[in-house]
Nucleic acid binder design. Structure first.
Length: 335
DNA sequence: AAGTGTTACAACCGCACGAAG
DNA sequence: TCTTCGTGCGGTTGTAACACT
């Protein structure tokens, strides 16, 4: 169906609303409500299209609209919800009373998105991203090494090796997260995937094969402002910050180093190497590890009851490697 | 002080979907 | 079942305010 948008009606006013127009709209809606947005402008004496009136009312004039800066708590909720829902601004707005989808969208694009990028996190996937310049440097080094243009070939080799090792580390962690973030979660819930021998999954992990997840996010059955503790609620869209929380300790006491930034248990926690302000406060950030969640529901006998939840995953991971007897190479990388 | 670039946010646009006829 | 209409949603644009040179 092709419907002429109200913008095609040239006689109707566009652009910023005047205080007079606002008053007319508020007066009318307070007296008559807004049963029919299309008819409303004419009845209210406004030279606007209904759509414009609706937007103005919902985003600005509604009495329950909360104006002003977003609190740290709201910011945290938005990040968490976005990691689960993606750009579903209206659904995110449902969890933030007084905030509109438009406001949240703008806040995301102007503040949060920027912060995440500065922190090296892909705002779309909520995963650490590999800086393209990093890869560029690598290819330049390779080119230089091949053409013999480097003053000290040995130094460049060491540098190159370090780069490759780091990239391999990143890729491994990404694959691990990918698995943890998809099928693995369900399998953990159903017990002992990580404890069992699963060569195909291991190959997928090592080869970087992604396990696609085309499922729609599960309906939000709980208040995502406080991330659920049931494994079902994750359903492949687990807050990645939580997964990073699982990595802590698995990659040394300082966490994982990517592009010069040391990542700790969530994006909210950074070392002095990254002087950026915390995206959310560490104290309020719900770093609820997926393993924690699993332990609370699954068969305890399948998990370490003495070690930390974090160690459980990596113990299982190491066991997987050892059991398959595949390569000391990957063990070296993990070490 | 003027010009230019950047940021933040209000508003617009077009598509999708559900309800009603 | 098809068409029309109203509404909701997400992406994009326009512009005022601010920062920088």
């Amino acid at each position: 169906m092709v419907r002429s948008p109200c913008s095609h009606v040239s006689a109707l006013k566009k652009g910023p609303w005047t205080p007079d127009e606002d008053t007319k709209l508020i007066d009318y809606i307070e007296r008559n409500g807004h049963e029919n947005w299309k008819a409303l402008p004419k009845l209210a004496g406004l030279n606007r299209c209904g759509k414009s009136c609706r937007l103005r009312w919902i985003n600005y004039l509604r009495p329950d609209v909360k104006r002003g800066e977003f609190s740290e708590e709201e910011e945290r909720v938005i990040v968490n919800l976005h990691s689960v829902l993606g750009n579903k601004w209206s659904r995110i707005a449902n969890h933030l009373p007084g905030r509109t989808d438009n406001e949240i969208k703008n806040f995301w694009n102007t503040h949060i998105r920027k912060k995440l990028l500065q922190m090296g996190i892909d705002p779309n996937t909520h995963k650490p991203r590999i800086d393209p310049s990093h890869l560029l440097n690598l290819s330049q080094l390779l080119g230089a090494a091949q053409s013999g243009n480097i003053a000290s070939p040995w130094n460049s080799f060491l540098k190159l090796q370090a780069e490759v090792t780091q990239l391999a580390n990143i890729q491994l962690v990404r694959n691990l997260l990918q698995m943890m973030n998809t099928n693995t979660l369900t399998n953990i819930e159903n017990n002992r995937l990580l404890g069992s021998q699963n060569p195909s999954l291991f190959r997928a992990l090592v080869n970087g094969t992604t396990i696609s997840n085309t499922k729609e996010p599960a309906p939000i059955s709980q208040d995502l402002a406080n991330p659920p503790v049931t494994p079902q609620a994750n359903n492949g869209f687990q807050d990645i910050s939580n997964l990073w929380g699982s990595c802590e300790g698995g990659f040394g006491p300082e966490g994982l180093n990517i592009n010069g930034n040391t990542w700790s248990s969530s994006y909210g926690i950074q070392t002095e190497q990254d002087p950026l302000p915390a995206l959310v406060s560490a104290s309020t950030s719900p770093v609820t590890s997926i393993v924690h969640q699993t332990e609370s529901k699954g068969d305890p006998s399948n998990y370490s009851t003495t070690g930390t939840p974090t160690s459980t995953i990596f113990e299982a991971w190491e066991k997987l490697i050892d059991d398959d007897n595949i390569s000391s190479y990957w063990n070296d990388i993990l070490d």
